[in-house]
Write a protein that binds this DNA or RNA. Sequence first.
RNA 1: GGAAGCGUGGCAGAGAGGCCGAAUGCACUCGCCUUGAAAGCGAGAGUCCCGCAAGGGUCCGGGGGUUCGAAUCCCUCCGCUUCCGCCA
Length: 460
Amino acid sequence: MRSGGLTTSCPARATHATPPQARSGPSGNRGAPGRYARPMHDPRVLLDPATDAVRKLARRGYSLDLAELEKLLSGRNSAIQRGDEARAESKRVATSVKGASAEERPALVERARELKGVVSAAEEEQKEFDGQLQDLLLGIPNLPADESPDGTSDADAELVRTWGRPPVVESPLDHVDIAEKLGILDLPRATKLSGPRFAVLKGKGAALQRAIGSYLIDKALENGYTEFSVPSLVTRQTMTGTGQLPKFEQDLFRTEVADRELFLIPTAEVPLTNLHARETLDLESLPLTYTAHTPCFRSEAGSYGRDTRGLIRMHEFAKVELVRFVDPATSRDELEVLVGHAESALQGLGLAYRVVKLAAGDTGFSSTLTYDIEVWLPSQDTYREISSCSDFGVFQARRAGIRTKAKDGSRGFAATLNGSGLPIGRTLVAILEQGQQPDGSVTLPEALVPYTGFSTLDPE
RNA sequence: GGAAGCGUGGCAGAGAGGCCGAAUGCACUCGCCUUGAAAGCGAGAGUCCCGCAAGGGUCCGGGGGUUCGAAUCCCUCCGCUUCCGCCA
């Protein structure tokens, strides 16, 4: 790579809306935005009174302008009709030119020229409506499930169940203190290298991190997932497919080399889900279940001052992600299956946790229903998020163009789900804190010993 | 980085300004035939958009242009293949 060619910027400023053209990117070959970006939300569904979209979106603080939507949709449709009609006549005229006599020909050609103008005017108008419609639709979050509780913060989440008993620890240390005594974590040097919110692990710490990753992948394989190794840098189009863009560009690290723009993935959800972007899957082949162990990069813009200590909130961390492509009719049940898989990873490690159902207003942009799994952290005397498992319905599939075709020929979109299974950093935190012993050592979960080759971490 | 070539439906592969949504083969669906299957015969079948429907439109890698008319000509971008160079 040429020196100085790579720049990484992290726009931590206020959200800047991305104009529709920008979706094409600087290097071309993003195809016609209209072709792949067509799906997103289905405006007809939103307009259908039975959907109750206004009320549902209000629960997450989004106020939907139905009149505007209606106006844009009908404007677009009538422009399409006018264009189609003119084009149809234009085709007829063009065909008739060939067999026309020398006398009639000039009139026909003249008429064809006229129609050309009509067509391009209609197309222009359609393009205008399309662009506006798309901007509106891309910014509308998914409809929250009715079963999600009211509210906008994690305090409004509904407790579903708890598992395991939080270990009794006398005057617990937090993971930073524990790790430093063990000599396995070097945050100051990480800051020297890259600034705040990065970590350096050393010795058994680094080995443990590697072990956790392997354990989690094996757990996913046990649960039937297919392992993938995927790029950590993806295009703007890919980020749009899963809903990170256009709205959340400020949360992402962006790279630029020459005129080429790529984004660092904030989760393997992005590449895994988009593996099937613009593809048609046999409905009968579902569910497809994928996993990958990848680095994740997040700007953490807007979380200044939160979790500034330790490994909880990093710009870069490793995670094993679980993704499911399913028949939309089954997605609600599939969410339970997915949560079960994430839970099985924690149970295998013997870590105490609880499961909560997020409030409508606290649910992510693309999600219709989300369970969070929270692991017990003795030092904070509370449960902290370690996994988020979401049902996206067909929301992502529409944006990314993940279609389905049934045996009988009927077509639709796949439902997608994903969940962390699990983030390695936070899992390490929980292991250190829940496993800490009075003498300053840490007893590792038995399940990890085959991966680490050691069962305790001892102070230096 | 330099040179040449290529990109057509699920696949293979014709077409080289109007008769092309696109031959043909394979695969596919439904019939017939058969005890069953294969073979054979017949029919059908693509996508997306607009429309209650009838029907109409779109799509030959993406975008743009020439023309009354483009898969076919021109420009451009992307991708792939081969050769040379460079790097590992």
